[in-house]
Amino acid sequence: MKIENNKSRMIKDAIGKIALYVASSLSVMTLVIIIGFVFVKGLPGINFDFLTRQWQDKTTFVNVTLQNTEDTDLSDSYIPSIRAYVEHSEESFTIIKLKDGSSLEKAKNLKNETYEVKKKDMITKIDSTNVKDMSMEEFSEQMNSVASQGITRLKVTRPGGGIQPMLISTLYIILLSLAIAAPVGILSALYLTEYAKKGKILGVIQFAIQMLAGIPSIIYGLFGMLVFVQLLKMQYSILAGALTLSILLLPTIISTTSESLKAIPKGYRESSLGLGATKLQTNFRVVLPNALPGILVAIILSIGRIVGESAALIWTAGTIAQVPSALTGNTASAATLTTKLYQLLKEEGDVASACSIAVVIIVLIWILNLLSKWITKRFTVKE
């Protein structure tokens, strides 16, 4: 009987190990396939221009004071009147290099504001003359001929195709959301842990927090659109998006902070109170500082949630690829990395660009996870 029982145990252990190996292999394989697909599709599209350019092409009319001077540079691509090297494309002439003192660096837009023409900007018109069908020689002659006028108007197009506005908007959303949610969440956790009396009311509050954590983010987006966008007339704006996300983040911050506060030994509190400190002083000078590792982890996890959120932001912050110049109003609407990714897939079917943005998001989340582990190791009190 003992031999049969041992064999039965061995068989069950073997089956259990095989099941564990199969489950682990499937999990790793799924992760590798997903990450591999995204990186294979998206990595070729990532470069410096992709990270630093605006999403849309920007066309500006600028007034330039041309320089009617002789230059010893005889390169075919060099235009003396603007002291710049250009490259001929099908519909424009692209600036590939500017010499010191180039008049393009001091160009003025139609509002008479300085608009510095930069490398890779494209000249598409000289006054009213379209340069589309010009050769390099004709372009150079045209520029030199109008140099005698002194000031000439050029139509300059700055190429887009970059995610700079979404990166900046994502950063704005992160800072605003945490500025609202972190203090409220930490203080709420402190109250629930250190001050609230156990009873039905506390139980209801804790149940409500658990319910908030389980609500789909699209519900938060609907609430934010109805309350912040329409009722409070914030319109689609980063402030409306940040307020919506701050509500979404509260359960995570409150729960994680509460667990960190509960982990602080009672002896710390008793020692502080025994030395004459008030309960408020004990909480802010002893309890919270010792709970700092857990609080920081909660904040970092919240940042990861913000970076990956799209449903709640589409209906509150908008999907316009621009850097917001205000907190509310027409100029405050902005797309984050995830909302732009969603828009590219749903409306344009641009899988390659969407995967490139996904690579950036994955790298950001990976960095946040590393930072979370480092903070935990760095600040955790060793017993």
Rank of each mutant, 00 (worst) to 15 (best):
L187F: 08
V204P: 00
A189R: 03
L202E: 13
K200V: 15
K197A: 13
Y191Q: 06
S188M: 11
K198C: 06
G203Q: 02
L212H: 00
M211W: 08
A213S: 12
T193Y: 09
A208S: 10
L190T: 09
A208L: 11
G214P: 09
F207L: 14
T193W: 10
Y191I: 12
F207N: 10
G203Y: 02
K200F: 12
E194M: 06
I218S: 00
A196E: 07
I201C: 03
M211S: 10
A208M: 10
Q210H: 13
L190V: 10
Q206P: 04
I186V: 07
A189E: 02
P216W: 06
G199Y: 01
I186C: 00
I215M: 06
P216R: 07
P216C: 09
E194Q: 08
A208P: 00
G214F: 10
L202F: 09
Q206C: 11
T193C: 12
S188H: 07
L212D: 02
S217I: 08
I186M: 01
I218L: 03
Q206N: 15
I218M: 03
A208E: 05
Q206M: 15
I201L: 08
I218E: 01
L202G: 06
K197R: 15
G214Y: 11
A208F: 11
A208C: 11
A196Q: 07
K198V: 11
I186L: 03
S188E: 05
G214L: 13
M211Q: 08
G199W: 01
K200Q: 12
L192I: 10
Y195R: 15
I205C: 03
A213P: 03
A189S: 07
S217Y: 03
F207V: 14
Y195W: 14
M211G: 10
Q210N: 15
A213M: 10
A208W: 08
I205A: 05
E194I: 06
I186W: 01
A196G: 05
L202I: 14
S188V: 09
A208Y: 07
E194T: 06
G214C: 14
F207G: 12
K200M: 13
I186S: 00
L190W: 03
T193S: 14
G199M: 03
I215W: 06
G203R: 04
I209A: 00
M211L: 14
E194K: 10
A213N: 09
L192P: 01
I205V: 12
I215P: 02
I205F: 04
L212R: 02
L187Y: 10
I215R: 05
K197V: 13
L192R: 05
Q206I: 15
L192F: 05
Q206D: 15
K200R: 14
K198R: 15
A196C: 05
T193E: 13
Y195K: 15
S188R: 08
S188Y: 05
A189M: 04
A189P: 02
A208V: 13
L187G: 01
S188F: 08
I201W: 06
S188P: 04
G203H: 04
L202P: 05
G199H: 05
Y195M: 14
A213G: 07
I186R: 02
E194Y: 04
L187V: 11
Y195P: 06
G214K: 14
I186G: 01
P216H: 07
G203T: 07
L190M: 12
L192G: 01
G199V: 05
Q206V: 14
G199F: 02
I186A: 00
